[in-house]
Design a protein around this nucleic acid. Structure first.
Length: 500
RNA sequence: GGUCCGUUCGUCUAGGGGUUAGGACACGUCCCUUUCACGGAUGAAACACGGGUUCGAUUCCCGUACGGACUACCA
Protein backbone atom coordinates (compact mmCIF):
# COMPACT_ATOMS: atom_id res chain seq x y z
CA UNK A 1 0.00 0.00 0.00
CA UNK A 2 1.36 3.32 -1.12
CA UNK A 3 0.25 5.31 1.90
CA UNK A 4 1.67 2.97 4.48
CA UNK A 5 2.77 4.49 7.74
CA UNK A 6 6.28 5.88 8.05
CA UNK A 7 7.43 7.47 11.29
CA UNK A 8 10.76 8.69 12.49
CA UNK A 9 12.74 9.36 15.61
CA UNK A 10 15.05 12.30 14.99
CA UNK A 11 17.31 13.07 17.94
CA UNK A 12 20.13 15.56 18.07
CA UNK A 13 23.54 14.23 19.10
CA UNK A 14 24.03 16.91 21.74
CA UNK A 15 24.46 14.59 24.69
CA UNK A 16 23.07 11.39 26.12
CA UNK A 17 19.57 10.51 25.01
CA UNK A 18 17.13 11.58 27.71
CA UNK A 19 14.67 8.96 28.94
CA UNK A 20 11.85 11.12 27.60
CA UNK A 21 13.49 10.86 24.21
CA UNK A 22 13.57 7.11 24.61
CA UNK A 23 9.85 7.14 25.23
CA UNK A 24 9.32 9.20 22.09
CA UNK A 25 11.35 6.66 20.14
CA UNK A 26 9.36 3.84 21.72
CA UNK A 27 6.00 5.36 20.80
CA UNK A 28 7.17 5.88 17.23
CA UNK A 29 8.39 2.31 17.08
CA UNK A 30 5.18 0.92 18.58
CA UNK A 31 3.04 2.90 16.18
CA UNK A 32 5.04 1.70 13.20
CA UNK A 33 4.75 -1.91 14.34
CA UNK A 34 1.06 -1.59 15.08
CA UNK A 35 0.36 -0.08 11.68
CA UNK A 36 2.65 -2.36 9.76
CA UNK A 37 4.74 0.65 8.81
CA UNK A 38 8.37 1.70 8.95
CA UNK A 39 10.32 3.30 11.77
CA UNK A 40 13.25 5.49 10.75
CA UNK A 41 16.12 6.91 12.72
CA UNK A 42 17.43 10.24 11.53
CA UNK A 43 20.20 12.14 13.22
CA UNK A 44 19.65 15.88 13.33
CA UNK A 45 23.16 17.19 13.71
CA UNK A 46 22.76 20.62 12.19
CA UNK A 47 24.06 22.45 15.23
CA UNK A 48 27.80 22.28 14.96
CA UNK A 49 28.32 24.18 18.20
CA UNK A 50 26.43 21.71 20.33
CA UNK A 51 27.68 18.54 18.72
CA UNK A 52 28.96 16.06 21.31
CA UNK A 53 31.28 13.25 20.27
CA UNK A 54 29.91 9.84 21.13
CA UNK A 55 26.34 11.03 21.48
CA UNK A 56 25.19 9.48 18.22
CA UNK A 57 26.71 6.17 19.15
CA UNK A 58 25.07 6.41 22.55
CA UNK A 59 21.67 6.86 20.90
CA UNK A 60 22.23 3.84 18.68
CA UNK A 61 23.36 1.67 21.57
CA UNK A 62 20.50 2.73 23.83
CA UNK A 63 17.88 1.91 21.23
CA UNK A 64 19.63 -1.37 20.48
CA UNK A 65 19.65 -2.32 24.16
CA UNK A 66 15.90 -1.87 24.39
CA UNK A 67 15.17 -3.49 21.07
CA UNK A 68 13.70 -0.34 19.54
CA UNK A 69 15.25 -1.16 16.21
CA UNK A 70 14.90 1.15 13.22
CA UNK A 71 13.85 -0.23 9.85
CA UNK A 72 15.68 2.55 8.08
CA UNK A 73 18.17 5.21 9.00
CA UNK A 74 21.55 5.79 10.57
CA UNK A 75 23.13 2.46 11.33
CA UNK A 76 20.88 0.44 9.05
CA UNK A 77 20.76 2.42 5.80
CA UNK A 78 17.80 2.62 3.46
CA UNK A 79 16.45 4.25 0.31
CA UNK A 80 16.82 7.82 1.55
CA UNK A 81 20.45 7.81 2.58
CA UNK A 82 22.18 9.63 4.07
CA UNK A 83 20.12 9.87 7.27
CA UNK A 84 22.48 12.25 8.99
CA UNK A 85 21.45 15.82 8.29
CA UNK A 86 24.97 17.19 8.22
CA UNK A 87 25.51 14.97 5.19
CA UNK A 88 22.40 16.37 3.49
CA UNK A 89 23.47 19.99 3.79
CA UNK A 90 23.32 20.90 0.09
CA UNK A 91 19.81 19.60 -0.22
CA UNK A 92 18.39 22.09 2.24
CA UNK A 93 20.04 25.02 0.50
CA UNK A 94 18.31 24.05 -2.75
CA UNK A 95 14.93 24.02 -1.04
CA UNK A 96 15.61 27.33 0.66
CA UNK A 97 16.53 28.79 -2.72
CA UNK A 98 13.25 27.59 -4.11
CA UNK A 99 11.38 29.43 -1.37
CA UNK A 100 13.50 32.50 -2.13
CA UNK A 101 12.65 32.29 -5.82
CA UNK A 102 8.96 31.98 -5.02
CA UNK A 103 9.08 35.04 -2.78
CA UNK A 104 8.23 32.97 0.28
CA UNK A 105 11.52 33.54 2.01
CA UNK A 106 14.07 36.33 2.07
CA UNK A 107 17.67 37.13 2.88
CA UNK A 108 18.40 38.82 6.19
CA UNK A 109 21.71 40.45 7.03
CA UNK A 110 21.06 41.49 10.60
CA UNK A 111 23.80 40.32 12.91
CA UNK A 112 23.11 38.53 16.18
CA UNK A 113 24.25 41.69 17.93
CA UNK A 114 21.75 43.80 15.95
CA UNK A 115 18.96 41.48 16.96
CA UNK A 116 20.02 41.26 20.59
CA UNK A 117 20.02 45.04 20.76
CA UNK A 118 16.59 45.11 19.15
CA UNK A 119 15.24 42.63 21.67
CA UNK A 120 16.72 44.59 24.55
CA UNK A 121 15.18 47.83 23.38
CA UNK A 122 11.76 46.27 22.90
CA UNK A 123 12.02 44.72 26.30
CA UNK A 124 12.88 48.01 27.95
CA UNK A 125 9.60 49.30 26.54
CA UNK A 126 7.76 46.35 27.98
CA UNK A 127 7.13 44.48 24.78
CA UNK A 128 8.67 41.56 22.95
CA UNK A 129 10.53 41.80 19.68
CA UNK A 130 9.33 39.71 16.80
CA UNK A 131 10.89 39.43 13.38
CA UNK A 132 7.65 39.60 11.43
CA UNK A 133 5.61 41.46 8.83
CA UNK A 134 5.67 44.59 10.94
CA UNK A 135 9.35 44.73 11.75
CA UNK A 136 10.93 43.13 8.69
CA UNK A 137 10.32 46.23 6.56
CA UNK A 138 12.57 48.20 8.87
CA UNK A 139 15.37 45.68 9.21
CA UNK A 140 18.35 44.71 7.15
CA UNK A 141 16.95 42.23 4.68
CA UNK A 142 16.03 41.71 1.04
CA UNK A 143 12.52 43.01 1.64
CA UNK A 144 13.53 46.32 3.12
CA UNK A 145 16.69 46.86 1.09
CA UNK A 146 16.94 47.76 -2.61
CA UNK A 147 17.71 44.78 -4.89
CA UNK A 148 21.02 46.27 -5.93
CA UNK A 149 22.08 46.66 -2.35
CA UNK A 150 21.14 43.08 -1.55
CA UNK A 151 23.16 41.86 -4.51
CA UNK A 152 26.09 43.92 -3.42
CA UNK A 153 25.95 42.59 0.15
CA UNK A 154 25.85 39.01 -1.04
CA UNK A 155 28.59 39.58 -3.59
CA UNK A 156 30.82 41.09 -0.93
CA UNK A 157 30.41 38.03 1.24
CA UNK A 158 28.31 39.57 3.99
CA UNK A 159 26.96 36.78 6.20
CA UNK A 160 23.25 36.25 5.83
CA UNK A 161 20.47 33.96 6.91
CA UNK A 162 17.34 33.01 5.01
CA UNK A 163 14.06 33.67 6.78
CA UNK A 164 10.56 32.48 6.08
CA UNK A 165 8.19 35.26 5.07
CA UNK A 166 5.29 34.48 7.34
CA UNK A 167 1.99 35.89 6.04
CA UNK A 168 0.79 38.93 7.99
CA UNK A 169 -2.75 37.73 8.30
CA UNK A 170 -4.35 34.38 8.60
CA UNK A 171 -4.84 31.45 10.87
CA UNK A 172 -2.90 28.22 10.90
CA UNK A 173 -4.76 25.19 12.08
CA UNK A 174 -4.06 21.51 12.28
CA UNK A 175 -5.59 18.52 13.96
CA UNK A 176 -3.19 16.90 16.38
CA UNK A 177 -3.80 13.22 17.08
CA UNK A 178 -3.52 13.82 20.78
CA UNK A 179 -4.71 17.41 21.24
CA UNK A 180 -7.27 17.70 18.48
CA UNK A 181 -7.55 21.09 16.76
CA UNK A 182 -4.87 23.63 17.48
CA UNK A 183 -5.09 27.06 15.90
CA UNK A 184 -2.75 29.99 15.93
CA UNK A 185 -2.76 33.35 14.19
CA UNK A 186 0.16 33.91 11.87
CA UNK A 187 0.72 37.24 13.58
CA UNK A 188 2.15 35.37 16.54
CA UNK A 189 4.63 33.45 14.42
CA UNK A 190 8.11 34.82 13.78
CA UNK A 191 9.87 34.94 10.43
CA UNK A 192 12.00 32.06 11.58
CA UNK A 193 15.49 31.50 10.29
CA UNK A 194 15.56 28.65 7.78
CA UNK A 195 19.22 28.71 6.78
CA UNK A 196 21.87 29.83 9.22
CA UNK A 197 24.82 31.94 8.20
CA UNK A 198 27.10 28.91 8.49
CA UNK A 199 25.20 27.33 5.62
CA UNK A 200 23.43 24.83 7.82
CA UNK A 201 19.65 24.62 7.92
CA UNK A 202 17.78 25.14 11.18
CA UNK A 203 15.72 22.36 12.66
CA UNK A 204 12.56 23.76 11.13
CA UNK A 205 13.72 23.60 7.52
CA UNK A 206 15.70 20.39 7.72
CA UNK A 207 12.92 18.64 9.58
CA UNK A 208 10.20 19.59 7.13
CA UNK A 209 12.30 18.88 4.06
CA UNK A 210 13.45 15.51 5.33
CA UNK A 211 10.07 14.44 6.60
CA UNK A 212 8.67 15.21 3.18
CA UNK A 213 11.44 13.53 1.21
CA UNK A 214 11.43 10.52 3.50
CA UNK A 215 7.67 10.28 3.10
CA UNK A 216 6.95 10.53 6.80
CA UNK A 217 3.23 10.14 7.41
CA UNK A 218 3.08 10.77 11.16
CA UNK A 219 5.28 13.06 13.20
CA UNK A 220 5.22 11.82 16.79
CA UNK A 221 7.35 14.09 18.96
CA UNK A 222 7.51 15.82 22.33
CA UNK A 223 5.19 18.59 23.37
CA UNK A 224 8.05 21.06 23.34
CA UNK A 225 7.51 21.14 19.56
CA UNK A 226 3.86 22.09 19.74
CA UNK A 227 4.49 25.85 19.59
CA UNK A 228 6.51 25.49 16.39
CA UNK A 229 4.13 23.08 14.70
CA UNK A 230 2.16 25.94 13.09
CA UNK A 231 5.41 27.22 11.62
CA UNK A 232 6.03 23.79 10.17
CA UNK A 233 2.54 23.74 8.68
CA UNK A 234 3.31 27.07 7.08
CA UNK A 235 6.48 25.61 5.62
CA UNK A 236 4.63 22.64 4.16
CA UNK A 237 2.20 25.11 2.63
CA UNK A 238 4.99 27.25 1.23
CA UNK A 239 6.44 24.21 -0.49
CA UNK A 240 3.02 23.04 -1.62
CA UNK A 241 3.40 19.78 0.27
CA UNK A 242 0.93 17.79 2.26
CA UNK A 243 1.75 18.01 5.94
CA UNK A 244 2.07 14.80 7.92
CA UNK A 245 -0.24 13.97 10.78
CA UNK A 246 1.11 15.41 14.02
CA UNK A 247 1.00 13.87 17.49
CA UNK A 248 2.57 15.87 20.31
CA UNK A 249 3.44 13.77 23.32
CA UNK A 250 3.02 14.95 26.92
CA UNK A 251 6.22 15.73 28.80
CA UNK A 252 7.90 13.69 31.50
CA UNK A 253 7.88 15.68 34.73
CA UNK A 254 9.98 15.76 37.87
CA UNK A 255 8.97 13.21 40.54
CA UNK A 256 8.59 15.98 43.08
CA UNK A 257 7.74 19.61 42.65
CA UNK A 258 7.24 21.25 39.30
CA UNK A 259 8.92 21.25 35.97
CA UNK A 260 10.14 18.76 33.47
CA UNK A 261 12.41 15.92 34.33
CA UNK A 262 16.05 16.89 34.13
CA UNK A 263 19.52 15.56 34.70
CA UNK A 264 19.51 17.31 38.06
CA UNK A 265 16.63 15.17 39.28
CA UNK A 266 18.71 12.09 38.73
CA UNK A 267 21.50 13.43 40.89
CA UNK A 268 19.05 14.48 43.58
CA UNK A 269 16.77 11.48 43.55
CA UNK A 270 19.41 8.83 43.07
CA UNK A 271 17.72 7.34 40.02
CA UNK A 272 18.66 7.46 36.37
CA UNK A 273 17.16 9.68 33.69
CA UNK A 274 19.26 8.17 30.93
CA UNK A 275 18.88 4.72 29.41
CA UNK A 276 22.55 3.88 29.78
CA UNK A 277 25.46 5.20 31.73
CA UNK A 278 27.04 8.24 30.13
CA UNK A 279 30.42 9.79 30.68
CA UNK A 280 30.58 13.40 29.64
CA UNK A 281 33.56 13.64 27.26
CA UNK A 282 34.32 17.20 28.36
CA UNK A 283 34.07 16.94 32.14
CA UNK A 284 34.35 13.20 32.71
CA UNK A 285 31.21 13.37 34.85
CA UNK A 286 29.31 10.10 34.90
CA UNK A 287 25.52 9.94 34.73
CA UNK A 288 23.62 6.84 35.79
CA UNK A 289 21.85 4.66 33.30
CA UNK A 290 18.83 2.41 33.66
CA UNK A 291 20.83 -0.47 32.25
CA UNK A 292 23.74 -0.20 34.67
CA UNK A 293 21.45 0.45 37.62
CA UNK A 294 19.99 -2.97 37.02
CA UNK A 295 16.75 -2.15 35.25
CA UNK A 296 15.83 -4.94 32.88
CA UNK A 297 15.03 -3.82 29.38
CA UNK A 298 11.58 -5.39 29.61
CA UNK A 299 10.84 -3.40 32.76
CA UNK A 300 12.23 -0.18 31.33
CA UNK A 301 10.11 -0.54 28.21
CA UNK A 302 6.95 -1.46 30.10
CA UNK A 303 7.38 1.37 32.58
CA UNK A 304 8.12 3.92 29.88
CA UNK A 305 5.22 2.86 27.72
CA UNK A 306 2.82 3.43 30.62
CA UNK A 307 4.06 6.95 31.24
CA UNK A 308 1.48 8.76 29.17
CA UNK A 309 -0.28 5.81 27.58
CA UNK A 310 -2.40 2.91 28.74
CA UNK A 311 -4.20 0.08 26.99
CA UNK A 312 -7.60 0.82 28.53
CA UNK A 313 -7.66 -2.61 30.10
CA UNK A 314 -6.36 -3.70 33.48
CA UNK A 315 -3.42 -5.59 32.07
CA UNK A 316 -0.16 -3.90 32.94
CA UNK A 317 2.57 -6.38 32.14
CA UNK A 318 3.34 -6.00 28.46
CA UNK A 319 6.15 -7.30 26.33
CA UNK A 320 7.39 -5.15 23.48
CA UNK A 321 5.32 -7.08 20.95
CA UNK A 322 2.25 -6.96 23.17
CA UNK A 323 2.72 -3.22 23.48
CA UNK A 324 2.88 -2.93 19.71
CA UNK A 325 -0.37 -4.86 19.39
CA UNK A 326 -2.18 -2.77 21.96
CA UNK A 327 -0.76 0.62 21.04
CA UNK A 328 -2.74 3.51 19.63
CA UNK A 329 -2.13 7.24 19.38
CA UNK A 330 -5.66 7.94 20.60
CA UNK A 331 -4.95 6.44 23.98
CA UNK A 332 -2.03 8.75 24.70
CA UNK A 333 -2.70 11.25 27.48
CA UNK A 334 -2.61 14.99 27.17
CA UNK A 335 -1.15 15.89 30.54
CA UNK A 336 2.47 15.50 31.56
CA UNK A 337 3.42 12.49 33.65
CA UNK A 338 5.54 12.57 36.78
CA UNK A 339 8.32 10.09 36.83
CA UNK A 340 7.77 7.59 39.66
CA UNK A 341 10.83 5.54 40.59
CA UNK A 342 8.84 3.22 42.85
CA UNK A 343 6.71 2.10 39.95
CA UNK A 344 9.77 1.52 37.81
CA UNK A 345 11.23 -0.61 40.58
CA UNK A 346 8.02 -2.58 40.92
CA UNK A 347 8.10 -3.39 37.21
CA UNK A 348 11.69 -4.50 37.59
CA UNK A 349 10.79 -6.83 40.46
CA UNK A 350 8.04 -8.36 38.39
CA UNK A 351 10.32 -8.96 35.41
CA UNK A 352 13.16 -10.32 37.52
CA UNK A 353 10.83 -13.07 38.71
CA UNK A 354 10.09 -13.92 35.11
CA UNK A 355 13.75 -14.32 34.20
CA UNK A 356 15.28 -17.74 33.76
CA UNK A 357 16.86 -18.48 37.17
CA UNK A 358 19.76 -20.36 35.62
CA UNK A 359 20.57 -17.41 33.37
CA UNK A 360 20.38 -15.06 36.33
CA UNK A 361 22.78 -17.31 38.23
CA UNK A 362 25.18 -17.48 35.31
CA UNK A 363 25.09 -13.73 34.73
CA UNK A 364 25.13 -12.42 38.27
CA UNK A 365 26.75 -15.20 40.32
CA UNK A 366 29.38 -16.32 37.83
CA UNK A 367 31.90 -17.39 40.48
CA UNK A 368 29.62 -19.98 42.04
CA UNK A 369 29.09 -23.53 40.83
CA UNK A 370 25.96 -23.58 38.69
CA UNK A 371 23.84 -25.61 41.10
CA UNK A 372 24.80 -23.44 44.04
CA UNK A 373 24.21 -20.24 42.05
CA UNK A 374 20.78 -21.50 41.10
CA UNK A 375 19.96 -22.32 44.71
CA UNK A 376 20.87 -18.79 45.77
CA UNK A 377 18.80 -17.29 42.97
CA UNK A 378 15.78 -19.22 44.22
CA UNK A 379 16.51 -18.14 47.78
CA UNK A 380 16.75 -14.43 46.99
CA UNK A 381 14.61 -13.92 43.89
CA UNK A 382 11.64 -12.50 45.81
CA UNK A 383 13.78 -10.18 47.87
CA UNK A 384 15.62 -8.12 45.27
CA UNK A 385 14.78 -5.22 43.02
CA UNK A 386 17.89 -5.35 40.85
CA UNK A 387 19.77 -8.47 39.75
CA UNK A 388 23.14 -7.26 40.97
CA UNK A 389 21.75 -7.38 44.53
CA UNK A 390 22.10 -11.14 44.19
CA UNK A 391 25.86 -11.03 44.69
CA UNK A 392 25.47 -8.71 47.68
CA UNK A 393 22.89 -11.01 49.26
CA UNK A 394 25.10 -14.02 48.74
CA UNK A 395 28.13 -12.29 50.24
CA UNK A 396 26.10 -11.25 53.29
CA UNK A 397 24.73 -14.75 53.55
CA UNK A 398 28.11 -16.36 53.46
CA UNK A 399 29.76 -13.98 55.90
CA UNK A 400 29.65 -15.12 59.52
CA UNK A 401 27.60 -12.84 61.75
CA UNK A 402 29.61 -9.93 63.10
CA UNK A 403 26.81 -8.73 65.34
CA UNK A 404 23.61 -10.34 66.57
CA UNK A 405 20.22 -8.64 66.36
CA UNK A 406 19.89 -6.91 69.74
CA UNK A 407 16.15 -6.50 69.65
CA UNK A 408 15.48 -10.17 69.07
CA UNK A 409 17.94 -11.16 71.74
CA UNK A 410 16.35 -8.78 74.21
CA UNK A 411 12.91 -10.27 73.72
CA UNK A 412 13.56 -13.91 72.91
CA UNK A 413 16.79 -14.89 74.62
CA UNK A 414 15.79 -16.86 77.72
CA UNK A 415 16.30 -20.19 79.47
CA UNK A 416 14.07 -22.11 77.05
CA UNK A 417 15.86 -20.65 74.07
CA UNK A 418 19.23 -21.48 75.60
CA UNK A 419 18.41 -25.10 76.25
CA UNK A 420 16.70 -25.35 72.86
CA UNK A 421 19.85 -24.15 71.15
CA UNK A 422 21.95 -26.53 73.19
CA UNK A 423 19.77 -29.49 72.24
CA UNK A 424 19.92 -28.47 68.60
CA UNK A 425 23.69 -28.18 68.80
CA UNK A 426 23.83 -31.70 70.15
CA UNK A 427 21.45 -33.10 67.54
CA UNK A 428 22.87 -31.48 64.42
CA UNK A 429 26.06 -33.57 64.11
CA UNK A 430 23.90 -36.66 63.92
CA UNK A 431 21.77 -35.48 60.99
CA UNK A 432 22.29 -38.01 58.23
CA UNK A 433 20.72 -36.27 55.29
CA UNK A 434 21.66 -32.59 55.29
CA UNK A 435 18.73 -31.14 53.43
CA UNK A 436 15.82 -28.94 54.58
CA UNK A 437 13.43 -31.74 55.51
CA UNK A 438 16.06 -33.78 57.28
CA UNK A 439 17.34 -30.81 59.28
CA UNK A 440 13.85 -29.70 60.17
CA UNK A 441 12.94 -33.20 61.25
CA UNK A 442 16.00 -33.49 63.49
CA UNK A 443 15.37 -30.14 65.16
CA UNK A 444 11.70 -30.84 65.60
CA UNK A 445 12.42 -34.20 67.13
CA UNK A 446 14.99 -33.09 69.66
CA UNK A 447 12.91 -30.12 70.78
CA UNK A 448 9.77 -32.17 71.17
CA UNK A 449 11.62 -34.84 73.13
CA UNK A 450 12.67 -32.19 75.58
CA UNK A 451 9.35 -30.41 75.72
CA UNK A 452 10.43 -27.17 74.05
CA UNK A 453 8.23 -25.42 71.49
CA UNK A 454 9.73 -24.68 68.04
CA UNK A 455 8.43 -21.12 68.20
CA UNK A 456 10.50 -20.44 71.30
CA UNK A 457 13.82 -21.07 69.64
CA UNK A 458 13.53 -20.69 65.89
CA UNK A 459 14.11 -16.97 65.70
CA UNK A 460 16.94 -17.22 68.20
CA UNK A 461 18.43 -19.96 66.05
CA UNK A 462 18.17 -17.66 63.05
CA UNK A 463 19.97 -14.90 64.93
CA UNK A 464 22.60 -17.36 66.12
CA UNK A 465 23.33 -18.52 62.59
CA UNK A 466 22.88 -15.36 60.52
CA UNK A 467 22.95 -12.53 63.03
CA UNK A 468 19.61 -11.30 61.66
CA UNK A 469 16.12 -11.58 63.05
CA UNK A 470 14.60 -11.97 59.61
CA UNK A 471 15.58 -13.57 56.36
CA UNK A 472 14.97 -16.38 53.92
CA UNK A 473 13.86 -19.88 54.86
CA UNK A 474 16.11 -21.08 57.67
CA UNK A 475 16.19 -24.76 56.70
CA UNK A 476 17.21 -23.98 53.14
CA UNK A 477 19.72 -21.51 54.50
CA UNK A 478 21.21 -24.16 56.76
CA UNK A 479 21.50 -26.53 53.86
CA UNK A 480 23.32 -23.88 51.86
CA UNK A 481 25.69 -23.01 54.67
CA UNK A 482 26.60 -26.65 55.08
CA UNK A 483 26.62 -28.88 58.12
CA UNK A 484 30.07 -28.05 59.48
CA UNK A 485 29.56 -24.32 59.06
CA UNK A 486 26.19 -24.40 60.82
CA UNK A 487 27.61 -26.34 63.75
CA UNK A 488 30.50 -23.94 63.97
CA UNK A 489 28.25 -20.86 63.82
CA UNK A 490 25.93 -22.26 66.45
CA UNK A 491 28.81 -22.98 68.82
CA UNK A 492 30.16 -19.48 68.30
CA UNK A 493 26.79 -17.94 69.04
CA UNK A 494 26.31 -20.01 72.14
CA UNK A 495 29.64 -18.74 73.39
CA UNK A 496 28.93 -15.12 72.49
CA UNK A 497 25.31 -14.78 73.56
CA UNK A 498 24.89 -12.97 76.88
CA UNK A 499 24.81 -15.04 80.02
CA UNK A 500 21.37 -15.56 81.54
C1' G B 1 5.18 39.75 29.31
C1' G B 2 3.17 37.13 24.77
C1' U B 3 1.53 32.51 22.21
C1' C B 4 0.06 27.64 22.84
C1' C B 5 -1.01 23.24 25.85
C1' G B 6 -2.80 21.00 30.18
C1' U B 7 -5.61 19.90 35.33
C1' U B 8 -9.64 12.53 38.26
C1' C B 9 -6.75 9.39 44.86
C1' G B 10 0.39 11.24 47.14
C1' U B 11 1.94 9.06 41.94
C1' C B 12 0.60 6.56 36.98
C1' U B 13 -4.23 6.32 35.23
C1' A B 14 -9.75 4.12 33.73
C1' G B 15 -14.28 6.33 33.00
C1' G B 16 -17.62 9.70 31.02
C1' G B 17 -24.29 13.70 31.28
C1' G B 18 -27.55 9.90 36.12
C1' U B 19 -21.43 5.09 38.53
C1' U B 20 -20.97 2.65 45.61
C1' A B 21 -15.93 7.26 40.32
C1' G B 22 -12.56 1.40 38.73
C1' G B 23 -7.29 -0.44 38.56
C1' A B 24 -1.88 -0.15 39.58
C1' C B 25 2.42 1.83 42.59
C1' A B 26 3.24 3.63 47.45
C1' C B 27 0.90 3.43 52.50
C1' G B 28 -2.22 0.88 56.72
C1' U B 29 -4.54 -3.74 58.51
C1' C B 30 -5.35 -8.97 58.20
C1' C B 31 -4.15 -13.97 56.22
C1' C B 32 -0.17 -17.28 54.66
C1' U B 33 4.89 -18.11 56.87
C1' U B 34 9.15 -20.32 62.77
C1' U B 35 10.78 -14.67 60.84
C1' C B 36 11.23 -11.44 56.76
C1' A B 37 10.17 -11.16 51.71
C1' C B 38 6.72 -13.09 47.98
C1' G B 39 1.60 -14.03 47.40
C1' G B 40 -3.64 -13.29 48.79
C1' A B 41 -7.43 -10.25 51.06
C1' U B 42 -8.84 -5.62 52.77
C1' G B 43 -8.74 -0.24 54.17
C1' A B 44 -7.78 4.95 53.77
C1' A B 45 -7.28 8.09 49.53
C1' A B 46 -9.34 11.96 43.82
C1' C B 47 -13.04 14.61 39.70
C1' A B 48 -8.72 22.54 41.03
C1' C B 49 -12.43 26.68 41.67
C1' G B 50 -16.61 29.79 39.87
C1' G B 51 -20.36 30.49 36.42
C1' G B 52 -23.43 28.63 32.49
C1' U B 53 -26.19 24.59 29.37
C1' U B 54 -29.33 20.61 31.37
C1' C B 55 -34.46 17.50 34.96
C1' G B 56 -29.33 16.22 36.24
C1' A B 57 -22.64 17.74 35.41
C1' U B 58 -16.75 15.04 37.50
C1' U B 59 -18.08 14.48 32.17
C1' C B 60 -20.23 19.77 27.50
C1' C B 61 -19.26 25.46 27.19
C1' C B 62 -17.04 30.00 29.29
C1' G B 63 -14.06 32.23 32.82
C1' U B 64 -10.52 32.06 37.05
C1' A B 65 -6.58 29.77 39.51
C1' C B 66 -2.61 26.68 39.14
C1' G B 67 1.01 23.92 36.27
C1' G B 68 3.83 23.32 31.77
C1' A B 69 6.09 24.21 26.99
C1' C B 70 7.71 27.71 23.64
C1' U B 71 9.23 32.69 22.85
C1' A B 72 17.82 31.61 19.56
C1' C B 73 21.43 31.91 13.23
C1' C B 74 19.43 25.06 19.84
C1' A B 75 17.04 21.04 18.75
Amino acid sequence: MSDSVRVRFAPSPTGPLHIGGVRTALYNYLFARKMGGKFLLRIEDTDQARFVPGAENYILESLAWLGISPDEGVGVGGPHEPYRQSERKDLYKAYADKLLADGKAYYAFDTSEDLDAMRASFESQGSAFQYNSLTRVKLKNSIALAPAEVEQLIASGTPYVIRLKVPAKGEVRFQDSIRDWVHVHTSSIDDKVLMKSDGMPTYHLANVVDDHIMEITHVIRGEEWLPSAPLHILLYQAFGWKAPQFAHLPLLLKPEGNGKLSKRDADLGGFPVFPMEWTDPATGAVSKGFKQEGYLKEATLNFLAFLGWNPGTEQEMFSLTELADAFSLERINKAGAKFDVKKAQWFNEQYIKQQDPAALAADYLPNLPADQGLAFVHLFLDRITFPQELAVKVAEFQARPAIYDEAVLASKWNADALSGLQFIAQALPGVESWEPEGIKHAIHEVLEANGIKMGKVMQILRVALSGNGAGPDLMISMQLWGKAEVIERLATALAKFPAL
